[in-house]
């Protein structure tokens, strides 16, 4: 039984296991952040945003240009977050608002159209010349020993950044009036208007926050995968899995889902029999696990099944 494993079993090589779990948590925090963006948008406007990854890409490319122009890494990161915020808000105002009252399928198709549109424009502007492009990280790529395993400083930086963003969003949603208004709008837009909440502004803010978080994700992923127009696609797929796993309307669910998917992906890649499964099958296996979870919890682990009126 143990011999068919691709790697030594966890109890024989705890260091490898620890390394897999920790690097799984690091990539998981990326999935968690992007999933958070997807959830923010789904909660506020009921849209599954297929363009979430391309929005991040569309922020990362100009930031790469800024890096070339000699801006320091941290400045670039903050400008990128601001740009993502503006892009998200702009997209909500210009192309999502007009389809808000259309059938959900139309809105899905609009985000698919946006996906193609942004990808193509980015190819046109930036993807001339050598690809993929190198994107620098403010965290460097040094190796650090964290007890059970060695990981890069960039991974630790991602984990810290992710936790920081989650903390900020938690405070925003639970301890500010603006957050209260955004939550109310997500639950019941009609009643929110009667409370005097500017619902349109809250929806736009939801997209803007998702854009900002997405922009940050793009800039954190690019140093690892390098930068090319479709570099976010794989991340987006795992982020979808994470968001659905936790429940599309639950921000804590997105975070748990992200970490879970990140670790599961690594363990599936390491500890499955290589002749019939193995690393090539880690994506299908992760997705299979997701579908199995959905069968028992059709709205994810922490999501709510929406009651529909007859």
């Amino acid at each position: 039984m143990i011999e068919v494993f691709l790697a030594p079993a966890p109890w024989n090589d705890p260091e490898l296991f620890g390394e897999q779990v920790i690097s799984g948590l690091a990539t998981g925090s990326i999935y968690a952040l992007l999933a958070l963006g997807i959830v923010l948008i789904y909660r506020s406007t009921d849209v599954v945003n297929f363009a979430q990854g391309e929005m991040a890409m569309f922020v990362t490319f100009p930031m790469w240009s800024l890096t070339l122009a000699g801006f320091p890494p941290w400045t670039v990161i903050f400008i990128g977050i601001a740009l993502g915020f503006a892009l998200g808000g702009f997209i909500e105002r210009t192309i999502i608002r007009p389809v808000e009252d259309k059938p959900p399928l139309s809105v899905v198709v609009v985000t698919l159209g946006l996906f193609v549109f942004l990808n193509s424009i980015a190819t046109w502007i930036w993807a001339q010349g050598e690809l993929p492009k190198v994107f620098s990280t403010p965290f460097e790529f040094n190796s650090v020993d964290v007890g059970v395993a060695r990981v890069t400083t960039h991974s630790i930086g991602i984990l810290v950044a992710a936790l920081a963003i989650m903390g900020v969003l938690y405070l925003l949603f639970n301890y500010t009036k603006l957050g209260l208004g955004m939550r109310a709008t997500a639950h019941n837009p009609g009643a929110s208007r009667l409370m005097g909440i500017n619902v349109g502004r809250m929806l736009m803010l939801g997209w803007a926050l998702a854009g900002a978080v997405g922009g940050l994700v793009g800039m954190l992923v690019a140093p690892i995968t390098f930068l090319f127009p479709s570099f976010m696609l794989a991340v987006l797929l795992y982020a979808f899995a994470a968001a659905v796993f936790g429940g599309l309307d639950s921000p804590p669910g997105a975070i748990v889902g992200g970490f879970f998917v990140g670790v599961a992906e690594n363990l599936f890649g390491t500890y499955t029999p290589s002749d019939i499964l193995g690393p090539e099958m880690k994506l299908p296996l992760t997705l299979l696990l997701l579908v199995i979870v959905l069968l028992f919890r059709p709205a994810g682990l922490f999501g709510h099944v929406r009651t529909r009126r007859v």
């Binding site: 946006l114 549109f117 193509s120 001339q128």
Partner: peptide, 8 residues
């Protein structure tokens, strides 16, 4: 250069 832009 950007056929997808038009399609999208």
């Amino acid at each position: 250069k950007a056929p997808g832009a038009i399609q999208g």
